[in-house]
Amino acid sequence: MITKRYLITRSIYAIATTFVAIVINFLLPRLTPGNPAVTALATTYHYLPPGKLKLLESQFGLTNAPLYVQFETYFWNLLHGNLGFSFHYYPETVTQVIAQHLPWTLFLLGTATLISSFLGVVIGRITGWMSGTKGETTLSSIFIALTSLPYFWFAIILQLVLAVDLVINGFRFFPINGSYSVFVTPGVNLPFIISALRHSLLPLISIVVTAFPGFALTMRNTMVNLNKEDYITMAKAKGLRESHIVKKYAARNAVLPVSTHIVLAFGYIVAGAFFVEIVFGYQGIGYVLYEAVTSQDFPLTDGIFLVITLTVIIANFAADLLYAYLDPRVQLR
């Protein structure tokens, strides 16, 4: 049962955070030294026709009107999904660019999160049982080492070893980069799907291998601590079956700390996915953000910032509601 009060406080937090994100997005171009439109023009965009400065400024909503009037226009545009034009992908709009590339990232992120949380929970449960043995200490040390590896560096190493170097009899097992082969046509056809999946393998492995050990360690610690809980002793005293205790007492209470960890780590996985996309030239939103940043495509950078921030805020909000449903005590905090 979710109480009204809890729902309202969590909603207020989500809305307040969204507002802060929007304000940052609005103020940054206006408060930073130098006119971003000029900067943008001065760098790469020589091909923009003369007189485009005015157009660019209106892109940013940079007028001489007072700030609150500018904010009104900005907010109105935002509500209509109007994020302006991308410099780099001109004449495409920011919304169009994001819509094209978001699915790739969602696929990569979703699959990676699912696989690594599944692996983490299963392996963590096993190491939880093994707790104290030599094998378990070794495994835990390896996991700690793996979580210490920077995502993008691990991705580069995988690319080097498994894609560039692993060629047997002229057959390359993993493509070096890209999201699909140039010989297939995007769409719902088997060659394209196979090619896309093949190209997503190394990026997926990079994320999963660096993400799942953290989950496994949390799951292990939770399992070990749970066995010391009084209600587990009580459950044994009641003469319940081991399987029942694991299911209704241990697992049920482990869900909260473990899912908290997964949600917290989600932010890192998003960042990790972006880096991995850059390394493998995988055309998701992270790669586009990289292009936008390096080519000073400010409208696109802003747009992607907003979309990611909103996604994470909504994910957090959903997770808050899920916790409250799973553990009635959460609402008291």
């Binding site: 009084d230 002793t233 009580m234 049920r252 209470n253």
Partner: peptide
């Protein structure tokens, strides 16, 4: 043989 434990607070499963 049944038992009443000292830690009344913690022997009940919090999520049931």
């Amino acid at each position: 043989v049944a038992m009443v434990f000292q830690s009344a607070m913690n022997v009940l499963n919090p999520v049931m």
